Simulated scan of single mutants.
Amino acid sequence: MPSPIPISRFLPRSLTPTKSLRPCSSPNQFQGCRFSYAKPSRALQRRFWCTVIWDELKLLDLLGSGGFGWVYKGTYYGQIVAIKKVRKCVKNKLAARQSFWAELNVAHLLHENIVRVVAATTSVPANPEDEDSVGTIIMEYAGGTSLDHRIYNCTEPLGMRGCLTFSHDIVSGLSFLHSHHIVHLDLKPANVFITEAGRCKIGDFGCSLKLPIGCDLTPTGQLRHLAGTYTHRAPELLKGGRATLKADIYSFAITLWQMMSRDQPYSGDRQCVMYAVVAYNRRPTFSTIFDESSLGRGIRSIISKCWECEPNRRPSAVELLENINCLEAQL
C-alpha cells in the first residue's frame, strides 16, 4: 500500500493547506526558469513552494490512461511536461488517493535517471471535467518512448551493449531511490522511459513506499502491499510478505531478462503463474542468447542472483551497479 504523505510536509509552517493556496506543490518548480538538477536556493524554494499557476499549464496530447487517471503531454511556462491527472476510483477511492501521494514520494528528489516532479496539487480549477480529480502532478517529460515499446515494437534488438547501458541507467536510479529508503514496487519496462538522448528514466511511482529510516523493510504493523504487476512482483510480495528494497532487485531481473529475450516472461493463467513462482520457484526460461558469449553468461548470472527466492540472497542496488560496470568494461 503506498504510504500517504501529509500535506503539511509540502507547506511552510506558516501556512495551512487550503484550496485557495493550491497545496502540495514541489519545490522543483520555478517560475520563468528552466527545470534543472541544480539545487535551488532556499529563497526560490520558499517563493514557489505552494503555487501551481493554472494559466501557465496547457494540455496538448493524451499519452495514456489507466485505472487511476490520465497522463497528458503539455506545457508549463512554455516547457514540455507530462501532466498526470489522478481520478477517484469508484471501486477503491482510498487506493486512488494513496496512488497520488505515493507519486510524491520522489517530489523532493533530483536524479538523472528518475522522472522528476515539477509540481503537484490536490486543488483543481472549477471545471466539471475535474470534479472527480484527486490531484494533478506535473512531471518532467522524459520522452515519448518507453522501454517496453523499445523491446517489443522495434525491429532492431538492443544487443548486449544496449542492454547493459539501459541496465546501468535503471540500476543507477534504483540505487539513488534506495539510498533515500524508497522502494518503487512496480519496476517494469512500461515504467521506464527513454529520452531523446537515449537514456533511461524510472517513472510512475504510484505503488512506491517510503520505508522507515534505518530499516529496509516495512514495519510489521503496516498493511501488506498488493499493488504492482504480478509478472514482476517478488515472490515474498506474492505471498503477502512485507516490502523490502530487494523487491525492486527482483523486478529488475525480470526487466533485464525481457531486454535480452524480447519475450514475455510468462504465459497462462495469472493465478497459476503466481502459484508457480511462489511454490515452485518458477522463473522465465533462459534462451540460447544467454550462452553464446561470456557477456551473455555474465548477464545470465546477474539475473539469476537478482531473482533469488530469498530477498537477502539478492544483491543490493549498489552491488548490482558494480557488477554491471564490470560487464560494461568487457565491451
Results as ranks from 00 to 15, higher is better:
residue 174 L to G: 09
residue 27 P to Q: 01
residue 194 I to V: 13
residue 231 T to W: 08
residue 160 M to V: 08
residue 248 D to F: 00
residue 176 F to D: 02
residue 19 K to P: 01
residue 49 W to K: 10
residue 138 I to M: 06
residue 286 F to N: 05
residue 51 T to A: 02
residue 132 D to F: 00
residue 154 C to I: 01
residue 149 H to D: 11
residue 223 L to T: 11
residue 45 Q to G: 00
residue 207 C to M: 09
residue 287 S to K: 07
residue 195 T to I: 03
residue 156 E to G: 00
residue 299 I to D: 01
residue 101 W to R: 11
residue 95 A to S: 13
residue 24 C to H: 03
residue 315 P to S: 10
residue 170 I to V: 09
residue 88 K to C: 06
residue 44 L to I: 01
residue 248 D to A: 00
residue 43 A to Q: 02
residue 21 L to V: 14
residue 145 T to N: 03
residue 299 I to N: 02
residue 219 P to A: 07
residue 250 Y to Q: 04
residue 314 R to E: 06
residue 309 C to D: 13
residue 1 M to R: 11
residue 217 L to D: 02
residue 125 P to E: 02
residue 45 Q to W: 00
residue 57 L to C: 00
residue 87 R to M: 15
residue 41 S to F: 02
residue 307 W to A: 10
residue 310 E to S: 13
residue 121 T to K: 04
residue 203 G to Q: 05
residue 100 F to P: 04
residue 2 P to D: 11
residue 278 V to T: 15
residue 180 H to E: 05
residue 296 G to A: 03
residue 25 S to C: 03
residue 220 T to L: 11
residue 73 K to G: 10
residue 198 G to A: 09
residue 264 Q to L: 15
residue 254 I to S: 10
residue 328 E to M: 14
residue 140 E to F: 04
residue 293 S to K: 08
residue 284 P to V: 05
residue 329 A to C: 08
residue 291 D to Y: 11
residue 103 E to D: 14
residue 23 P to Y: 03
residue 297 R to D: 05
residue 45 Q to A: 06
residue 8 S to L: 14
residue 299 I to R: 04
residue 264 Q to H: 14
residue 36 S to G: 13
residue 106 V to R: 10
residue 88 K to E: 11
residue 254 I to A: 12
residue 217 L to C: 11
residue 48 F to D: 07
residue 24 C to T: 04
residue 235 P to T: 07
residue 134 V to W: 02
residue 140 E to P: 08
residue 183 V to I: 07
residue 177 L to T: 03
residue 101 W to D: 14
residue 313 R to Q: 14
residue 215 C to D: 11
residue 289 I to L: 07
residue 280 Y to P: 00
residue 319 E to M: 07
residue 257 W to E: 07
residue 286 F to P: 05
residue 323 N to G: 00
residue 52 V to G: 09
residue 18 T to W: 06
residue 273 V to Q: 07
